[in-house]
Simulated scan of single mutants.
Amino acid sequence: MRLIFDADHEQFRDAARRFFLNELAPHVERWREQGFVDRWAFEKAGSLGYLLTWADEKYGGAGMSDLRYEQILVEECVRQADIGIYFNLHSTVVAPYIAEIGDEAQRERFLPKAISGEHILAIAMTEPAAGSDLAGMRTKAVRAHDGEGDDWILNGSKIYISNGMQADVVVVAARTSSESKPESRHTIGLFIVEAGMAGFSRGKKLKKMGLPAQDTAELFFENVRVPAANVLGDPTRGFQHMARLLAKERLSLAMTSMAHAQTAFDLTLDFVKERQAFGRPIGAFQNSRFVLAQLRSELDAVQCFVDQCVLLANDRKLDADTGAKAKLLATDLEGRVIDACLQLHGGAGYMDEYRISRMYTDARVSRIFAGTNEIMKEIIGRGLGLDERAAR
């Protein structure tokens, strides 16, 4: 029993469950084979108010600032359809940069089409030589010096960008200082790059171990002229903006990982009750009972913590340390649960016709993106006053 949801939430969940089960689930196998989710799925979700549920009504949103509605959408998407349908990245990771950092003109330009699903959003931080260490990025933006306003010229590349192939609007992080001083590593700006801008191109769709329905790409920027109207906030404070919003991004990932782990557990519980070995269900063996009992206990405990973090986010009290804890605990547990569940499936678990096999490879990246789990431990440790630099 989860105590954070009321009758309105459950009614919303019932409708969302039907949408993902009836409208999207029948297409999942094809999307995994073709390597991306059809655009119409975003548009259909938008027409039902399932994208950017928190956005103000004046932009076309539902005005439901309660993050629990987004949490429900994540959970039902994973359970009924596929974890590679990245509505959550679009709605809870990228769009808040525009809503919270952008000015009113930017919100009016970009949010309505994101809400309707007409435009797909992506965020570009990671680079070939700079993953979790955002301060190490090499993509640069310099002011244009041709007398035509406060435009910027963007050069560089980004890799492993989710929604990269289909994105119409990409929030790009770039270094905005040419100084070599250590403090200049954090002088970063955020720029809105739109599909069709001269100099903006995409590499081929990247092949991955898992999440085949989620398109992932490398993006290239060659003298892309970004107008001043597409600069998000202060172009020297992007690092601070990212640090603040990454806490919520990591919580979004934690919500997804918990839904994935819970789904794997449910599938496996059904499997061990039906599959026979030595004349009885394999769930009747002590090892199966003990493994599932341990997993059930851990799932309940971490779910309570993640739910509490959602309430903290609703009150704008979710800090970087707590977001890192949620991401660390949920993604580690996701990996352990799905590995144990695959083992209980035996040989069947290694066959792609069983969903648990696909879930195993889909889950592996969770401990890597949005900052590796090793980086999460660094963040949490520094919050305890255990900064290596301070000890010197």
Rank of each mutant, 00 (worst) to 15 (best):
I83M: 11
Y160L: 14
E10M: 09
G196I: 06
P281L: 11
R107E: 11
I161Q: 11
R107G: 09
A264T: 03
D266A: 14
Q11M: 05
V93Q: 09
I120G: 06
K205P: 02
G60Q: 10
I380S: 01
L253T: 05
C304G: 14
K158G: 04
V193F: 00
A81F: 06
Q303Y: 02
G203W: 03
D14M: 00
F285T: 10
F285C: 13
D266Q: 10
S252V: 03
G210Q: 13
R289G: 02
M197R: 12
A135R: 14
L89F: 04
A254Y: 01
V272R: 13
H345G: 02
L3Q: 12
V337P: 12
G347M: 04
R2E: 10
I159W: 01
F290C: 13
R367I: 08
G84C: 04
L211M: 07
T92M: 08
V272F: 03
K317E: 11
E33R: 15
F278D: 15
G84E: 07
F305D: 15
F87K: 09
D307E: 14
D321L: 12
A81R: 08
H186A: 02
V93T: 07
R289T: 06
M197A: 11
S288N: 11
R79V: 03
L232Q: 10
G371M: 03
A114M: 14
F200S: 10
F271E: 15
L24K: 07
G136S: 06
D319H: 02
A228H: 12
V169P: 04
N314M: 07
H260Y: 04
A391I: 08
R17W: 01
W31S: 10
F36I: 12
T139C: 10
A7H: 04
L384Q: 07
V193M: 01
S157A: 11
A167P: 09
D270W: 03
R367H: 00
V171Y: 00
Y59R: 07
Y350I: 05
R244G: 04
L52Q: 13
A264D: 13
F191G: 04
L299G: 00
F42Y: 15
H90V: 13
D151E: 12
L232A: 10
E179G: 02
A363N: 03
A284D: 15
N314R: 07
